[in-house]
Design a protein around this nucleic acid. Structure first.
Lengths: 152, 152
DNA sequence: CGCTAGATGGGAATGATTTTCAGATCAATG
DNA sequence: CATTGATCTGAAAATCATTCCCATCTAGCG
Protein backbone atom coordinates (compact mmCIF):
# COMPACT_ATOMS: atom_id res chain seq x y z
CA UNK A 1 0.00 0.00 0.00
CA UNK A 2 0.96 3.60 -0.28
CA UNK A 3 3.07 3.56 -3.40
CA UNK A 4 4.77 6.75 -4.27
CA UNK A 5 2.43 8.10 -6.86
CA UNK A 6 2.70 11.78 -7.76
CA UNK A 7 -0.08 13.44 -5.80
CA UNK A 8 -3.25 11.60 -6.56
CA UNK A 9 -5.60 9.95 -4.07
CA UNK A 10 -3.15 10.54 -1.22
CA UNK A 11 -5.43 11.65 1.58
CA UNK A 12 -2.53 13.21 3.37
CA UNK A 13 -2.32 15.83 0.68
CA UNK A 14 -5.09 17.47 2.67
CA UNK A 15 -2.89 17.84 5.66
CA UNK A 16 -0.67 20.17 3.75
CA UNK A 17 -3.64 22.33 2.87
CA UNK A 18 -4.06 23.43 6.42
CA UNK A 19 -0.77 24.72 7.70
CA UNK A 20 2.22 22.84 8.99
CA UNK A 21 2.44 19.10 8.53
CA UNK A 22 2.48 17.27 11.81
CA UNK A 23 2.00 13.67 12.86
CA UNK A 24 -1.11 14.49 14.85
CA UNK A 25 -2.78 16.15 11.93
CA UNK A 26 -1.96 13.27 9.66
CA UNK A 27 -3.50 10.86 12.15
CA UNK A 28 -6.63 12.92 12.63
CA UNK A 29 -7.19 13.46 8.92
CA UNK A 30 -6.64 9.80 8.17
CA UNK A 31 -9.15 8.71 10.79
CA UNK A 32 -11.57 11.39 9.66
CA UNK A 33 -11.47 10.14 6.09
CA UNK A 34 -11.79 6.55 7.21
CA UNK A 35 -14.93 7.49 9.12
CA UNK A 36 -16.89 7.99 5.88
CA UNK A 37 -19.85 9.88 7.24
CA UNK A 38 -20.62 12.51 9.80
CA UNK A 39 -18.56 12.34 12.96
CA UNK A 40 -18.37 14.56 15.98
CA UNK A 41 -15.04 15.86 17.21
CA UNK A 42 -15.38 13.98 20.46
CA UNK A 43 -16.34 10.74 18.75
CA UNK A 44 -13.30 11.02 16.51
CA UNK A 45 -11.15 11.77 19.51
CA UNK A 46 -12.42 8.66 21.27
CA UNK A 47 -11.88 6.55 18.23
CA UNK A 48 -8.29 7.72 18.01
CA UNK A 49 -7.69 6.99 21.67
CA UNK A 50 -9.16 3.52 21.22
CA UNK A 51 -6.87 2.94 18.24
CA UNK A 52 -3.88 3.78 20.35
CA UNK A 53 -3.20 7.13 18.71
CA UNK A 54 -3.93 9.55 21.49
CA UNK A 55 -4.27 13.06 20.13
CA UNK A 56 -5.40 16.02 22.19
CA UNK A 57 -9.05 16.94 21.93
CA UNK A 58 -8.07 20.50 21.13
CA UNK A 59 -6.07 19.26 18.20
CA UNK A 60 -8.98 17.27 16.85
CA UNK A 61 -11.19 20.35 17.07
CA UNK A 62 -8.55 22.53 15.46
CA UNK A 63 -8.01 20.09 12.62
CA UNK A 64 -11.68 19.59 11.87
CA UNK A 65 -12.56 23.26 11.87
CA UNK A 66 -9.50 23.97 9.75
CA UNK A 67 -10.64 21.39 7.22
CA UNK A 68 -14.12 22.88 7.24
CA UNK A 69 -12.71 26.37 6.75
CA UNK A 70 -10.61 25.09 3.88
CA UNK A 71 -13.73 23.66 2.32
CA UNK A 72 -12.57 20.09 2.70
CA UNK A 73 -15.34 19.17 5.11
CA UNK A 74 -19.04 19.75 5.52
CA UNK A 75 -20.42 20.71 8.87
CA UNK A 76 -23.92 20.21 10.22
CA UNK A 77 -25.49 20.38 13.61
CA UNK A 78 -26.99 17.57 15.55
CA UNK A 79 -30.46 18.06 17.00
CA UNK A 80 -28.64 18.42 20.29
CA UNK A 81 -26.46 21.18 18.91
CA UNK A 82 -23.35 19.09 18.51
CA UNK A 83 -21.27 19.71 15.41
CA UNK A 84 -20.78 16.87 13.00
CA UNK A 85 -18.18 16.90 10.24
CA UNK A 86 -17.90 14.92 7.05
CA UNK A 87 -14.92 14.68 4.77
CA UNK A 88 -15.53 16.07 1.31
CA UNK A 89 -13.26 14.53 -1.34
CA UNK A 90 -14.23 16.76 -4.24
CA UNK A 91 -14.78 20.49 -4.47
CA UNK A 92 -18.55 20.15 -4.76
CA UNK A 93 -20.94 21.55 -2.28
CA UNK A 94 -23.36 18.79 -1.28
CA UNK A 95 -26.34 18.07 0.89
CA UNK A 96 -27.07 14.85 2.70
CA UNK A 97 -29.82 12.77 4.12
CA UNK A 98 -28.85 11.95 7.65
CA UNK A 99 -30.48 9.10 9.56
CA UNK A 100 -31.43 10.20 13.04
CA UNK A 101 -31.12 6.66 14.36
CA UNK A 102 -27.86 5.24 13.07
CA UNK A 103 -26.11 8.25 11.60
CA UNK A 104 -26.00 6.80 8.09
CA UNK A 105 -25.63 9.57 5.57
CA UNK A 106 -26.31 9.61 1.89
CA UNK A 107 -25.72 12.45 -0.53
CA UNK A 108 -28.76 13.67 -2.41
CA UNK A 109 -29.23 15.54 -5.65
CA UNK A 110 -29.23 19.12 -4.53
CA UNK A 111 -29.50 20.86 -7.88
CA UNK A 112 -32.96 22.28 -7.21
CA UNK A 113 -32.03 23.76 -3.85
CA UNK A 114 -28.92 25.31 -5.27
CA UNK A 115 -30.95 26.94 -7.99
CA UNK A 116 -33.49 28.12 -5.49
CA UNK A 117 -30.81 29.56 -3.22
CA UNK A 118 -29.28 31.33 -6.19
CA UNK A 119 -32.61 32.84 -7.11
CA UNK A 120 -33.19 34.06 -3.59
CA UNK A 121 -29.73 35.52 -3.52
CA UNK A 122 -30.31 37.38 -6.77
CA UNK A 123 -33.77 38.71 -5.96
CA UNK A 124 -33.50 39.52 -2.28
CA UNK A 125 -31.03 42.35 -2.28
CA UNK A 126 -29.19 40.51 0.44
CA UNK A 127 -25.50 40.05 -0.15
CA UNK A 128 -23.43 36.97 0.28
CA UNK A 129 -26.19 34.43 0.81
CA UNK A 130 -25.05 31.14 2.20
CA UNK A 131 -27.29 28.19 2.86
CA UNK A 132 -27.44 25.17 5.05
CA UNK A 133 -29.87 22.40 4.40
CA UNK A 134 -30.42 19.46 6.63
CA UNK A 135 -32.64 16.55 5.86
CA UNK A 136 -33.05 14.12 8.67
CA UNK A 137 -35.07 11.01 8.95
CA UNK A 138 -34.96 7.32 9.55
CA UNK A 139 -33.19 5.20 6.98
CA UNK A 140 -34.81 2.08 5.50
CA UNK A 141 -32.94 -0.29 7.81
CA UNK A 142 -33.73 1.52 11.03
CA UNK A 143 -37.30 2.04 9.86
CA UNK A 144 -37.72 -1.68 9.40
CA UNK A 145 -36.28 -2.47 12.80
CA UNK A 146 -38.43 0.12 14.44
CA UNK A 147 -41.59 -1.25 12.82
CA UNK A 148 -40.68 -4.71 14.07
CA UNK A 149 -40.03 -3.44 17.55
CA UNK A 150 -43.41 -1.76 17.64
CA UNK A 151 -45.13 -5.01 16.77
CA UNK A 152 -44.02 -6.92 19.86
CA UNK B 1 -54.23 49.42 29.16
CA UNK B 2 -55.57 45.89 29.12
CA UNK B 3 -59.29 46.40 28.63
CA UNK B 4 -61.41 43.38 29.10
CA UNK B 5 -62.13 42.38 25.53
CA UNK B 6 -63.63 38.94 24.87
CA UNK B 7 -61.02 36.72 23.25
CA UNK B 8 -60.27 37.90 19.76
CA UNK B 9 -56.78 38.58 18.34
CA UNK B 10 -55.57 37.99 21.84
CA UNK B 11 -52.11 36.53 21.43
CA UNK B 12 -52.53 34.99 24.81
CA UNK B 13 -54.61 32.30 23.23
CA UNK B 14 -51.25 30.74 22.59
CA UNK B 15 -50.53 30.53 26.23
CA UNK B 16 -53.37 28.15 26.71
CA UNK B 17 -51.94 25.89 24.04
CA UNK B 18 -49.03 24.98 26.19
CA UNK B 19 -50.34 23.82 29.52
CA UNK B 20 -51.47 25.84 32.45
CA UNK B 21 -52.10 29.55 32.13
CA UNK B 22 -49.79 31.60 34.28
CA UNK B 23 -48.76 35.22 34.41
CA UNK B 24 -45.16 34.46 33.56
CA UNK B 25 -46.07 32.56 30.45
CA UNK B 26 -48.37 35.32 29.32
CA UNK B 27 -45.59 37.85 29.74
CA UNK B 28 -43.05 35.75 27.90
CA UNK B 29 -45.37 34.97 25.01
CA UNK B 30 -46.40 38.60 24.69
CA UNK B 31 -42.80 39.78 24.56
CA UNK B 32 -41.92 36.99 22.18
CA UNK B 33 -44.64 38.02 19.76
CA UNK B 34 -43.70 41.65 20.08
CA UNK B 35 -40.14 40.76 19.14
CA UNK B 36 -41.14 40.06 15.53
CA UNK B 37 -38.13 38.15 14.38
CA UNK B 38 -35.66 35.68 15.71
CA UNK B 39 -34.72 36.07 19.36
CA UNK B 40 -32.58 34.02 21.65
CA UNK B 41 -33.93 32.89 24.99
CA UNK B 42 -31.37 34.95 26.84
CA UNK B 43 -32.05 38.06 24.80
CA UNK B 44 -35.74 37.73 25.52
CA UNK B 45 -34.97 37.22 29.17
CA UNK B 46 -32.90 40.40 29.24
CA UNK B 47 -35.56 42.33 27.44
CA UNK B 48 -38.13 41.24 30.00
CA UNK B 49 -35.88 42.22 32.86
CA UNK B 50 -35.32 45.63 31.29
CA UNK B 51 -39.08 46.07 30.91
CA UNK B 52 -39.53 45.44 34.58
CA UNK B 53 -41.09 41.99 34.16
CA UNK B 54 -38.48 39.76 35.68
CA UNK B 55 -39.13 36.16 34.73
CA UNK B 56 -36.79 33.31 35.45
CA UNK B 57 -34.49 32.29 32.65
CA UNK B 58 -35.63 28.70 33.06
CA UNK B 59 -39.18 29.80 32.45
CA UNK B 60 -38.22 31.62 29.28
CA UNK B 61 -36.49 28.51 28.02
CA UNK B 62 -39.40 26.32 28.97
CA UNK B 63 -41.91 28.58 27.30
CA UNK B 64 -39.98 28.94 24.07
CA UNK B 65 -39.28 25.26 23.65
CA UNK B 66 -42.89 24.50 24.50
CA UNK B 67 -44.05 26.88 21.79
CA UNK B 68 -41.63 25.31 19.34
CA UNK B 69 -42.84 21.84 20.26
CA UNK B 70 -46.41 22.98 19.78
CA UNK B 71 -45.48 24.24 16.33
CA UNK B 72 -46.09 27.86 17.23
CA UNK B 73 -42.48 28.88 16.79
CA UNK B 74 -39.65 28.24 14.37
CA UNK B 75 -36.23 27.44 15.68
CA UNK B 76 -32.88 27.94 13.98
CA UNK B 77 -29.34 27.95 15.13
CA UNK B 78 -26.96 30.84 15.22
CA UNK B 79 -23.54 30.37 13.68
CA UNK B 80 -22.36 30.14 17.26
CA UNK B 81 -24.82 27.38 18.01
CA UNK B 82 -27.23 29.51 19.97
CA UNK B 83 -30.90 28.79 19.43
CA UNK B 84 -33.06 31.52 17.99
CA UNK B 85 -36.85 31.39 18.03
CA UNK B 86 -39.42 33.16 15.96
CA UNK B 87 -43.13 33.34 16.58
CA UNK B 88 -45.21 31.70 13.88
CA UNK B 89 -48.72 33.16 13.66
CA UNK B 90 -50.12 30.79 11.06
CA UNK B 91 -49.76 27.05 10.63
CA UNK B 92 -47.43 27.35 7.65
CA UNK B 93 -43.96 26.02 7.61
CA UNK B 94 -41.62 28.75 6.42
CA UNK B 95 -38.00 29.51 5.72
CA UNK B 96 -36.24 32.78 6.32
CA UNK B 97 -33.35 34.87 5.23
CA UNK B 98 -31.46 35.83 8.34
CA UNK B 99 -28.99 38.71 8.40
CA UNK B 100 -25.80 37.72 10.15
CA UNK B 101 -25.10 41.29 11.18
CA UNK B 102 -28.30 42.71 12.58
CA UNK B 103 -30.57 39.70 12.93
CA UNK B 104 -33.19 41.05 10.54
CA UNK B 105 -35.23 38.19 9.16
CA UNK B 106 -37.42 38.01 6.13
CA UNK B 107 -39.53 35.08 4.98
CA UNK B 108 -38.75 33.74 1.53
CA UNK B 109 -40.75 31.76 -0.98
CA UNK B 110 -39.90 28.21 -0.07
CA UNK B 111 -42.11 26.36 -2.51
CA UNK B 112 -39.23 24.95 -4.54
CA UNK B 113 -37.42 23.58 -1.51
CA UNK B 114 -40.59 22.02 -0.19
CA UNK B 115 -41.13 20.29 -3.50
CA UNK B 116 -37.55 19.16 -3.57
CA UNK B 117 -37.75 17.82 -0.05
CA UNK B 118 -40.91 15.97 -0.93
CA UNK B 119 -39.27 14.40 -3.94
CA UNK B 120 -36.31 13.28 -1.90
CA UNK B 121 -38.63 11.85 0.70
CA UNK B 122 -40.52 9.90 -1.91
CA UNK B 123 -37.53 8.55 -3.80
CA UNK B 124 -35.04 7.86 -1.05
CA UNK B 125 -36.73 5.06 0.82
CA UNK B 126 -36.07 7.03 3.95
CA UNK B 127 -39.04 7.51 6.20
CA UNK B 128 -40.21 10.62 7.89
CA UNK B 129 -37.97 13.14 6.17
CA UNK B 130 -37.77 16.48 7.87
CA UNK B 131 -35.79 19.41 6.63
CA UNK B 132 -34.12 22.48 7.98
CA UNK B 133 -32.97 25.23 5.70
CA UNK B 134 -31.01 28.20 6.77
CA UNK B 135 -30.09 31.09 4.56
CA UNK B 136 -27.80 33.59 6.11
CA UNK B 137 -26.22 36.69 4.76
CA UNK B 138 -25.92 40.39 5.09
CA UNK B 139 -29.05 42.45 4.53
CA UNK B 140 -29.05 45.49 2.23
CA UNK B 141 -28.69 47.97 5.09
CA UNK B 142 -25.80 46.27 6.79
CA UNK B 143 -24.14 45.63 3.46
CA UNK B 144 -24.26 49.34 2.69
CA UNK B 145 -22.83 50.28 6.04
CA UNK B 146 -20.11 47.72 5.72
CA UNK B 147 -19.12 49.02 2.28
CA UNK B 148 -18.93 52.53 3.70
CA UNK B 149 -16.83 51.41 6.59
CA UNK B 150 -14.39 49.70 4.29
CA UNK B 151 -13.89 52.90 2.33
CA UNK B 152 -12.57 54.94 5.21
C1' DC C 1 22.73 21.95 13.46
C1' DG C 2 20.19 26.01 15.44
C1' DC C 3 16.32 28.90 15.36
C1' DT C 4 11.62 30.35 15.54
C1' DA C 5 6.90 30.60 14.01
C1' DG C 6 3.57 27.54 14.35
C1' DA C 7 1.57 23.34 16.69
C1' DT C 8 0.39 20.52 20.72
C1' DG C 9 -2.19 19.01 24.95
C1' DG C 10 -4.56 19.10 29.09
C1' DG C 11 -6.67 21.57 32.30
C1' DA C 12 -9.22 25.51 33.24
C1' DA C 13 -12.69 28.71 31.39
C1' DT C 14 -16.88 29.75 28.81
C1' DG C 15 -21.50 29.93 27.76
C1' DA C 16 -25.78 28.13 26.39
C1' DT C 17 -29.05 25.00 27.98
C1' DT C 18 -30.97 21.65 31.43
C1' DT C 19 -31.91 19.84 35.82
C1' DT C 20 -33.12 20.10 40.59
C1' DC C 21 -36.18 20.89 44.15
C1' DA C 22 -38.43 23.66 47.65
C1' DG C 23 -41.85 26.80 47.66
C1' DA C 24 -45.56 29.43 45.07
C1' DT C 25 -49.78 29.07 42.06
C1' DC C 26 -53.43 27.36 39.61
C1' DA C 27 -58.09 25.39 38.99
C1' DA C 28 -61.25 21.98 39.96
C1' DT C 29 -64.02 20.51 43.79
C1' DG C 30 -66.45 20.26 48.33
C1' DC D 1 -64.82 30.60 50.04
C1' DA D 2 -61.46 26.92 51.61
C1' DT D 3 -59.06 22.74 50.39
C1' DT D 4 -55.92 20.17 47.82
C1' DG D 5 -53.16 17.92 44.51
C1' DA D 6 -51.12 18.79 40.21
C1' DT D 7 -48.39 22.00 37.90
C1' DC D 8 -45.36 25.83 37.54
C1' DT D 9 -41.61 28.87 38.99
C1' DG D 10 -36.89 30.41 39.83
C1' DA D 11 -32.25 30.44 41.85
C1' DA D 12 -28.58 27.84 41.92
C1' DA D 13 -26.07 23.81 40.61
C1' DA D 14 -25.08 20.56 36.96
C1' DT D 15 -24.06 19.41 31.97
C1' DC D 16 -21.60 19.43 28.03
C1' DA D 17 -19.63 20.84 23.73
C1' DT D 18 -16.35 23.93 22.51
C1' DT D 19 -12.65 27.36 23.19
C1' DC D 20 -8.87 29.43 25.57
C1' DC D 21 -4.39 29.51 27.89
C1' DC D 22 0.22 28.61 28.05
C1' DA D 23 4.27 25.97 28.96
C1' DT D 24 6.36 22.86 26.06
C1' DC D 25 7.50 20.75 21.60
C1' DT D 26 8.85 20.44 16.53
C1' DA D 27 8.62 21.26 11.58
C1' DG D 28 11.34 23.00 8.28
C1' DC D 29 14.09 26.98 6.65
C1' DG D 30 18.75 28.94 6.56
Amino acid sequence: MERNRPAAPTPLADVTLIGRHTQQRAVVVKAFIRAEGFVGAQALHNRLAADGSPVGLSTVYRTLTALADAGRADMVRDTSGERLFRYRPGPDHRHYLLCTECGLSRPVDSGPVEDWADTIARTSGFANVRHTVELSEVCPDCGRQRATAEHR
